[in-house]
Design a protein around this nucleic acid. Structure first.
Lengths: 192, 192
DNA sequence: GGGCCATGTCATCAGTTGGTGACTTCTAGG
DNA sequence: CCTAGAAGTCACCAACTGATGACATGGCCC
């Protein structure tokens, strides 16, 4: 938001780049790749749309850049192993979707249908999600267990994207959270 | 495919309507709402693009019509209750994605990011997926268990949409299938 | 202070999209 | 056979998209 030590905001390439990146991240997460226009991103960032092409080469490259900067799975892998399930389930089922932790999932799910975004998503999610997760899990069947975890996490996010929250009340959401946590922990600890 | 008792194919409104619907269903499932143009649908169906607006009112209404006609969850609910998990897991993890059973999921996941399609998806999936599933499950926590099943089913589909199959070999896919089946059956039978 | 390059602004392009209305053509009913 | 209306064809529009190149301007170094 606030550039480190630059005068104000005009004529500052680094700040402009950051502003574009920030605006794009939010737009891509909330609307998806196709539904987001470069003019909207530029407007949010308070810059001219032409600068997007100038700084990033184009919308597609900007999307790739956003993926690289988005917060990834690492946060959940750093914490206590036994609480992995509840921490992730909390994010998936009860925490508001506006949370930044959600953004990578939202970007992926909302943009996966666009061919231009799909390739970047595949590449990035493998490097920033699957690979770390597999390593963290360890064992022979790490790949399968990573996939299982991914299924539950993506599915839960997808459900919230589609239905928001208006099909479950807070009591049910709590039950959902606990069940998700058990399933996740089961995939983490047990043999599949 | 073959109209019941009409001459050939030209000048047959019912057959034309069906052809458009069929072509649209496949396009929406494979490309998603946004990526599919009315010209492509019309071309696949072998008709003029203007007929889509004439017959259905527009692309949006056509999409709603497609959702209504797409095969839904009922097939899996009819079969043996004990084999629900394996049957669904088979579809999710091992059967080729070209299968018609997949189409409703694909349409939903690939089109959910489009605002125009989203509303139709919400309405239809509630009526044709959640409602039947909840009734079939029964019990106090049917809503939560339906959501859990939905998470796993959508997540598994989403993973295949994003990564196709090239991250897992057939052996791993089989393990994945068995684990998914256990999880699904757990949600069906047990208390969450 | 002056030149120069980085930075930002603007008008505009070419392509694509969904949609519409006038036109043609075929077929059914009298 | 001949007309009326359904079915299909065609040209075209208006809106929007991402992108580009010419132009203006500000700030930094000499």
């Amino acid at each position: 938001m606030s550039p480190p030590m630059t005068p104000a905001r005009t004529r500052n390439a680094a700040a402009t780049r950051t502003a574009i990146l920030e605006a794009a991240r939010k737009r891509f997460a909330h609307e998806g790749y196709d539904q987001t226009g470069v003019r909207e991103i530029a407007s949010d960032a308070g810059v001219d749309a032409a600068l997007i092409s100038r700084y990033f080469g184009g919308k597609e490259e900007l999307f790739g850049e956003v993926l690289s900067c988005a917060p990834n799975i690492a946060e959940f892998l750093d914490g206590d192993r036994d609480s992995f399930g509840v921490r992730v389930a909390q994010m998936l089922a009860v925490e508001p979707m506006r949370e930044e932790k959600f953004e990578l999932f939202l970007i992926m799910l909302r943009s996966a249908s666009s061919p231009k975004a799909a390739e970047a998503i595949r590449r990035h999610s493998h490097d920033a999600f699957y690979q770390p997760l597999e390593t963290w899990l360890g064992g022979d069947d790490a790949a399968v267990r990573a996939r299982l975890l991914s299924c539950v996490m993506m599915g839960a996010t997808m459900n919230r994207v589609i239905y928001e929250d208006y099909l479950l009340d807070s009591q049910q959401r709590q039950e959902l959270c606990e069940a998700l946590a058990r399933t996740l922990d089961n995939y983490v600890s047990g043999p599949v």
